[in-house]
Design a protein around this nucleic acid. Sequence first.
DNA 1: TTGTAGGCGTTATCAA
DNA 2: TTGATAACGCCTACAA
Lengths: 337, 337
Amino acid sequence: MAVTIRDVAKQLHVSITTVSRALDGYDDVAEATRARVIRASREMGYVPSRAARELRRKRAEAIGFILPTSQPRFADPFFAEFIAGLGDEAATRHFDLLVSSAPPNHVTERTAYERWVQSRRVDGIVLTWMRRNDWRVRHLAKEHFPFVAFGHPRGAIEVPSIGVDGAAGMRSLVAHLVERGHQRIAFVAASPDLGFQAERYRGYRDGLAAANIALDESFTAEGDLTRTGGYQAGKRLLALPNRPTAIIGVNDLTAIGVMRAASEIGLRVGSELAVAGFDGIEDTAHTDPPLTTLNQPVYDIARQAVGMLLKIIEGEALSEPHVLLQPELIIRQSTAG
Amino acid sequence: MAVTIRDVAKQLHVSITTVSRALDGYDDVAEATRARVIRASREMGYVPSRAARELRRKRAEAIGFILPTSQPRFADPFFAEFIAGLGDEAATRHFDLLVSSAPPNHVTERTAYERWVQSRRVDGIVLTWMRRNDWRVRHLAKEHFPFVAFGHPRGAIEVPSIGVDGAAGMRSLVAHLVERGHQRIAFVAASPDLGFQAERYRGYRDGLAAANIALDESFTAEGDLTRTGGYQAGKRLLALPNRPTAIIGVNDLTAIGVMRAASEIGLRVGSELAVAGFDGIEDTAHTDPPLTTLNQPVYDIARQAVGMLLKIIEGEALSEPHVLLQPELIIRQSTAG
DNA sequence: TTGTAGGCGTTATCAA
DNA sequence: TTGATAACGCCTACAA
């Protein structure tokens, strides 16, 4: 079996208490003793058992994240980056990251969250893709379970969150398009239940209003955040009698789908149709033509989210419970015409 | 505090033993008692503490996966799908998935693996992006720690693995290109240290040999598995005096980068230059033109890998320690000309 | 079929 | 500055 604290203590002829305290950096242990303990531990390959420590400390030293897998074949590059950020920040703080997945609002989602909460498998949870009247928020708040949200859920409950100003981003994007001479600007949306959809859409409408352009309801189509959804919505919009000259996707994948719809009917993106997205995923730099987008620093956001979560877990007050970052408008050839 | 097994026992006026056994499905407990226990547990919201159970059982009921984050801004869609597969299969088997990340062969990678192994934080580990003479394999084998590899490492040590036949895939791809009249076929490779690179490159060469085409060393360029790497390598290849008429990327991202390099110099992909990749990520269906690729069922592979790993953890023998799947050649317009 | 009791490996309290 | 000892919550021989 693995070497335990008792083995180290026996070897050194000290008590297990001493070993424990020496290793955890308490200051009431003689430096000489500490040095001996540390050396012996390393030599003997002693690493404290996580399970025992958890049991005693009542802390899992882990945080959880549940992927909102909307699709059977799920592969949003956004989440690879997000998870890398979560994992890196957690690791530097000596926490582990548990990842699971569940389709949003599906029954299995509920069990997934409850399992972690009830069994204290994790000390806190990171939420993303916030929804209107999100049951996860209600549930976690009721259980007094630490969590932090990426995105700002609207609702009665106070939620520590970090988000990107989707409305402001969209306003600046619309302004950019108007400046390029566009008046007929369409929007491919996502489910209205999604918080960032509402926010970005609001920015789109406000942007139009600011330019004195009347909102044309037929210029809003709904996708599902995937390329395929964007493609289908794009086809519908481009089949309109008086079709738009610019189309904004609620996210980059959607916009990429729109580009394909355009090129399929021989429309040149950039000169004959402007297309733009939101997220700033790496793909956008490599589409043909490169895609204008609103970049959000996903990796850093993830790290910051973990930082906030750990503070909450430690019981510290957050100096800033609602961090709001500005997305960066990256203008590329897809809106160059 | 959370409700414990003792609370349930007290409530029901039975011993904690009875509660424990009733819940774990032992058959030496009266059905009536079991029913009462189960109902009371649910009503009281009792879920066994993972920490206590782990300590007692000496099992973490968790598996680990460490993302090979080669880039600062890391976002390979391959891994989002892979993680979703790992997480789903683990969850259905009542295991948790721990995710961390580390740059391949960096010192921190070693600590990341060792931490989990030493502290028994996880019961097994899934390995990917196998390398030549992989220290992880040596280390885990030496520690008798359960693991399974995605990809077939060549080496002295017997490694349970699931892989996709990259060589066969590349042979069929080359055959396809030759059939379309191509003779000058280039390859954008990855680090030769990577197992699948060696394998796919071998397939490329074998494919050329089968068609009696001499290998032109200048037709091999090295990328880094990213779109940018592919773009740069593509530019080099296309600047060659007698440039290739077809370029194969060792993975899809690389191929996507090559496409951009081509369109940048006004070469039409499909008619004037054939491009193909490997992986079958969703992007390939939405590039312009859509990209020919070798599809590997990443999600299912991940699930199967977990299945194999759990068998190893349970101490069962694997009926098939080396699963080899065939990639599926998906021919699209990028090689249509 | 049920209950008693010991121990998994730590950390924390208290006394020395 | 160190040590003995009691939990933490659960599982499992063994006894009843």
